[in-house]
Amino acid sequence: MTLDTFVLQLTNGLVFSLLLFLMAAGLSLIFGLMDVVNLAHGAFYLLGGYLGLSIVRWGGSFWLALLLAPLLVGVLGLLLELTLLRRLYRRGHLDQVLATFGVALIVADLMRAAWGAYVEVVAPPALLAGQVAIGGLAFPTYRLAVIAVGLSLALGLWLFVERSTVGMQIRAGVSDPQMAGMLGVDVPRLFAGVFAGGCALAAFSGVAAAPILTLYPGLDSEILILALVVVVVGGLGTLRGAFFGSLIVGMADVFGKALLPEFSVFAIFVVMAAVLLTRPAGLFGRATATRGA
């Protein structure tokens, strides 16, 4: 591998890592607060992408899609939390996880009915079409923008969780929901908000990744598995874990494909197995925190 190619692959790795971070952030956020692995995450990702497609088709811009699709899916997530998940709080997390699995099946088929079975593409905005030169090789501008968006989202989420009042409440809710409740935090409202936010993030990544990964039936489960791998590698429920998990999985995927293309199908699972076998809680998870579904 020449230096040029290495730099190119490294950039590819960054792009894919940050795409993965976009995909995994919502899943991680919901798990962090609610202890629920949202198996409908992939379905909401795809729903976001399809809504974005429709918004662009109806004459809206890509930017409008990037704003509106997450909003719509966020509202759907909110409704789901209020009508479905909330009823299951008493029963423990497994029932909630199973409920989201059922929702994933339902949403997947509804999308199939609404948007058909063809492969659909969302064009990137004109501003980000074309290429820029990196180390003598051309690189698509949109993919570079994905790096920027991913990094800003990571920073924004970090600031939100660490610095804002709501973020403080979330952290309080994560570490001790009962105590947070007693201190006047409206925990149910917090749960609903975080669930809606996590779903909106899934939809956001669905729109953002659509120009690269396209949209088609079945993508939902692919994305779900990718996002699950990322959060499990990073350590469930921590933003930092999702970020570094994305980097590791993204780089493993890209360099696996570059160096051993024939075996790249195993790359991310090998990395995940290696991490889990040495650190069952993931890289940034606490050693005891291996609960969950």
Binding site: T5, L8, L137, E222, V254, K257, S264, V265
Partner: peptide, 15 residues
């Protein structure tokens, strides 16, 4: 390349 899901094909293109 991986089947059935190729994922992001960018690394293959660089090669």
């Amino acid at each position: 390349t991986p089947f059935p899901n190729i994922g992001d094909p960018a690394p293959f293109l660089a090669e």
